[in-house]
C-alpha cells in the first residue's frame, strides 16, 4: 500500500494531527506556567512588602497585578557603595557560603571568583563586592579572606523570625 491509502489505513492523519496538537499544547502550557511562575516567585520573595498589617487583601492583589519590575531602582542601587540589605543578598550569600564549604577558609578572592564563574553564578565580581561591603566576607590576613559566620548566622536568624 502506498500514498494516501497507506496513510489512511494506518490512522496516519489522526496520529499526525493529534501529535502536533499535543506537542503544541504541552509547550504552550509550559510557556504559560513559566510566565506565571515568575510572578509567583516575585510575590513570594517580596511578600514582606505586601503583607503589612494595614494593607487590605484587595490592595495586595491589585499591587500584584499592576506591579512591574523597576529595573532603574536596581541599577541605581548597584551604582552606590552603600552595602545592600541582607534581603537582597540572601540568595547570593547562601550560594557563596555553599562554595566556601568546598573551597575552605581562609581563601583568596581570585579563587572564589574563579569557582563562582565556573559554577555559572551571575555577576560574580559585583556579588563578591556586595558581600565585602556587607561584611559577610572579611579580611583574614596576608591577603586572605574568610566568611563572617557570626554575622551570617545573626542575619539568618533575623530572617527566620521575620
Amino acid at each position: 500500500m502506498y500514498g494516501f491509502e497507506a496513510v489512511a489505513a494506518h490512522n496516519g492523519w489522526s496520529i499526525a494531527i493529534l501529535g502536533i496538537l499535543i506537542v503544541f499544547t504541552g509547550l504552550t502550557l509550559l510557556s504559560v506556567s513559566i510566565a506565571y511562575f515568575t510572578k509567583i516567585l516575585n510575590f513570594y520573595n517580596e511578600k514582606n512588602k505586601y503583607l503589612k498589617k494595614d494593607r487590605k487583601w484587595w490592595q495586595v492583589f491589585k499591587y500584584m497585578l499592576i506591579k512591574k519590575q523597576h529595573k532603574t531602582n536596581d541599577i541605581d542601587n548597584s551604582l552606590t557603595l552603600e552595602p545592600k540589605s541582607f534581603d537582597k543578598l540572601k540568595e547570593p550569600a547562601d550560594q557563596y557560603y555553599a562554595i566556601l564549604q568546598y573551597l575552605g577558609e581562609p581563601f583568596q578572592l581570585p579563587e572564589l571568583l574563579d569557582i563562582a564563574k565556573k559554577r555559572g553564578l551571575e555577576k560574580p565580581h559585583s556579588t563578591i563586592n556586595d558581600l565585602l561591603l556587607a561584611k559577610l566576607i572579611i579580611p583574614h590576613r596576608l591577603g586572605y579572606f574568610c566568611w563572617n559566620h557570626k554575622k551570617y548566622k545573626q542575619k539568618k536568624k533575623i530572617q527566620i523570625k521575620d
Partner: peptide
C-alpha cells in the same frame, strides 16, 4: 518556546510521508 513546538511539525509531516512511501 512555541517556535520549538512549530518546528516539531516536521516530525509528523515526515511520518505521513514515510507511511505514504
Amino acid at each position: 518556546m512555541l517556535l520549538g513546538a512549530a518546528a516539531q511539525m516536521g516530525i509528523f509531516i515526515t511520518f505521513l510521508g514515510a507511511l505514504a512511501l
